[in-house]
Amino acid sequence: MGRLGRNRLVRTLGPFVPVVVLWWIVAEMEVFPPAFFVGPDAVIDEFSEMIRKGILPAYLSDSMTRLWTGVVFGLLIGIPAGFIVAMSFWARRLTWPLLLFFQAIADIAWLPIVIVWFGFSLTAVTFVIVYTIVFPLMISIVAGVEQVPRDVVRAARSLGAGRFRVFTDVIVPGALPAVATGIRTGLGYGWRALIAAEIIIGTSGIGFMMFDARRAGEVTPVFVGMIVLGVLWFALDALVLAPFERSTVERWGMVRTAEVAR
């Protein structure tokens, strides 16, 4: 049992086993009508059929294109803007209330006016994703810069480092763990914003597929969509985002410091 508990595959998939078993039992007992609740076997069959017909790959490709377009623009805007706000007293003073204000407005609240501005287009979905990513990323960067020890900054200046060298050699490395966390959080928000936008204004994509199946009274594609979304995000987070955040934190000593303290 101890060896199984240390197996990474078992630790990852183990928690899902009772969920799938319970799902199968509920479906077999027909607690809910089969038209409203299907079992794992029906979902697997539907998944295979959608792969065979090329429907799922096409929708998934559209969703990934929209996501990465929004992510790229979100990072290009959010990272420089976050450091500007963090490093400038006046920029912080003038923009901080705006950051908190817009951070509190859900991305889905923008969809009605975005439709008026851009119609049912890639630009509309990209706008929503960028909006969702930028503000939590900027706030994380500001928090990261504030956590850089002032003694380190003063030491660099006493050794002759100018403002630019202090920024590139002290501030940026010290804030990188917060940047990594902000990117991870922002992408999570952006992922959900993508699906919400596709459901409401999309003409293709996983979100559109799920909503279109609902309108047709078919629940199986909805189950397929939800599972695909969960698996994709889990894989992205486990294989890319979490290692990136962990390696960034370890690189700048946060984890080692905590271990020494224990």
Rank of each mutant, 00 (worst) to 15 (best):
F164Y: 10
P136H: 01
F101A: 15
I227G: 14
M64L: 15
V130Q: 00
R11A: 15
V43N: 10
S247C: 02
T185L: 13
D45M: 02
F32H: 09
V19Y: 06
R215C: 02
L99P: 02
T123L: 08
I25H: 04
L4Q: 10
A242E: 09
R246A: 12
E30A: 15
V148H: 08
A104L: 08
L100Y: 08
R256C: 01
R150K: 14
V71I: 11
T257C: 00
V31R: 02
R251W: 06
M226T: 05
W96F: 13
L13N: 10
V71N: 10
V38G: 04
R184Y: 04
W191T: 08
G162C: 09
A42G: 02
T203L: 13
T126V: 11
M29F: 14
F244R: 01
G190F: 10
P18Q: 09
I105C: 03
S88Y: 03
I141Q: 05
G202A: 08
P177T: 00
A91G: 12
T132F: 07
V130L: 06
L94P: 05
G160F: 05
V114M: 12
S247A: 10
S140M: 04
R3E: 14
W24P: 07
G14R: 01
F16M: 13
S63V: 08
G205W: 08
I199A: 14
I129Y: 13
L9G: 01
I44T: 08
M64N: 05
F16I: 11
I183P: 09
P80C: 04
I55F: 06
G207S: 04
M254R: 11
V142E: 09
P221I: 02
P221M: 00
G253N: 03
M1N: 02
V72N: 04
P40A: 11
A213I: 08
T203K: 10
